[in-house]
Amino acid sequence: MHNPTSGGRQPQPTPPTPHPQDPDIVFTADFASPTQWVAGRSWAYPDGGPTNPDDDKLDHLVPDASYSRTGVFRATRRPDGFWNTGLLTTEGSPEGFVVRADDELRARVRLPTAQAAWPAIWTWRDGGQEVDVFEYHPDNPDLLELTNHVHGAGSYYSDESIRPGAWMDLRITFGARSVTWWVNDVLAYVDGVGVGHRWHAHLIVNLSVSAGRYHPAPAASTSKMSYEVRDLVVRRPGAGGGGYGH
């Protein structure tokens, strides 16, 4: 029941799916593009990274393209106890794309299976402006976390379709007055507070690794984990094909 409540050969990049039928699409993610995305660095982490242990993360961000540029976001264990992890952000990229109030984001993701995997798509700018399109922890196998940190709203959404390894279709409208989430085309949560009319923020797509404070740390036998993101697009009603909106 859905419950809307408050190593080896590397995969090749998946080309972005064009949407010529919708002139309001202002951003189609090409994770391999160095003009769209910066890899392995984010000011959402102290000093831009590479680590963030105070947020219960074992991440050690790396720019290595095999960790993020294919759309498969990977993490591998390091000898020092941290994990090399993949992160992409539009912050600091040549195009510098930002999502704005009332934009709609859609993405298709395949959830990870390994304990301690912590995938997310989220926004960030100037020390905040965070809205989580989703977060997931396999120890809560049928649950997604949906959060508007801008105005302190959030929900857990559970459904039998949510499970480790499953593909999920995600949609979010960053409404000025109310942020709305859909999961597999089912309405999941309406926060009723929104982000405000002047809100704008950069995109982040990444895989973190939980350190064990709030969710289990990786099993001793686990040395790698991953999840996949496809077909991430941003739609801006009324844009009319005007290209990237900075």
Rank of each mutant, 00 (worst) to 15 (best):
P53N: 09
D54S: 05
D55E: 15
D55I: 01
D55S: 09
D56M: 10
D56E: 03
D59S: 10
H60M: 04
H60Q: 07
H60L: 04
L61D: 06
L61M: 08
L61S: 01
V62T: 15
V62R: 08
V62I: 10
A65Y: 09
S66T: 15
S66E: 15
Y67F: 15
Y67Q: 05
Y67S: 01
R69L: 09
R69T: 09
R69P: 00
T70S: 15
G71S: 00
V72A: 13
F73R: 13
F73Q: 12
F73C: 10
F73I: 12
A75W: 11
T76A: 13
R77P: 03
R78W: 11
R78P: 07
D80G: 14
G81Q: 08
F82H: 13
W83V: 07
N84Q: 14
N84G: 09
G86D: 06
G86F: 07
L87W: 09
L87M: 13
L88Q: 07
L88E: 00
E91A: 06
G92D: 11
G92V: 04
E95N: 07
G96C: 10
F97K: 11
V98M: 02
R100H: 15
D102R: 11
D103F: 02
E104D: 08
E104K: 14
L105N: 09
R108C: 10
L111Y: 13
L111N: 08
P112W: 08
T113K: 15
T113L: 08
A114D: 12
A116C: 06
A116P: 01
A117Q: 02
A117L: 00
P119E: 13
P119D: 10
A120H: 12
T123I: 03
T123V: 02
T123M: 02
W124V: 01
R125G: 05
D126L: 01
G128L: 07
Q129R: 10
E130A: 05
E130S: 03
E130M: 02
V131G: 07
V131K: 09
D132L: 02
D132R: 10
D132A: 08
V133Q: 06
Y136V: 12
Y136D: 12
H137G: 03
H137D: 09
H137C: 07
P138Q: 03
D139T: 08
P141E: 06
L143E: 15
L143V: 02
L144S: 04
L144N: 08
L144R: 09
E145I: 13
L146E: 09
N148L: 05
N148E: 05
N148I: 09
H149I: 03
V150F: 12
G152W: 13
G152S: 13
A153R: 12
A153T: 12
S155C: 00
Y156G: 11
Y156K: 10
Y156M: 05
Y157V: 05
Y157L: 10
D159T: 05
D159W: 10
D159A: 15
E160S: 15
E160I: 06
S161C: 10
S161K: 11
I162W: 11
I162M: 14
I162R: 12
I162A: 06
R163E: 12
R163H: 15
P164Y: 13
G165A: 03
M168F: 05
D169R: 15
L170D: 00
L170I: 14
L170F: 14
I172L: 14
I172E: 00
T173M: 06
T173Y: 04
F174G: 00
A176D: 02
A176P: 04
A176E: 00
S178D: 09
S178N: 12
V179A: 06
T180H: 07
T180G: 02
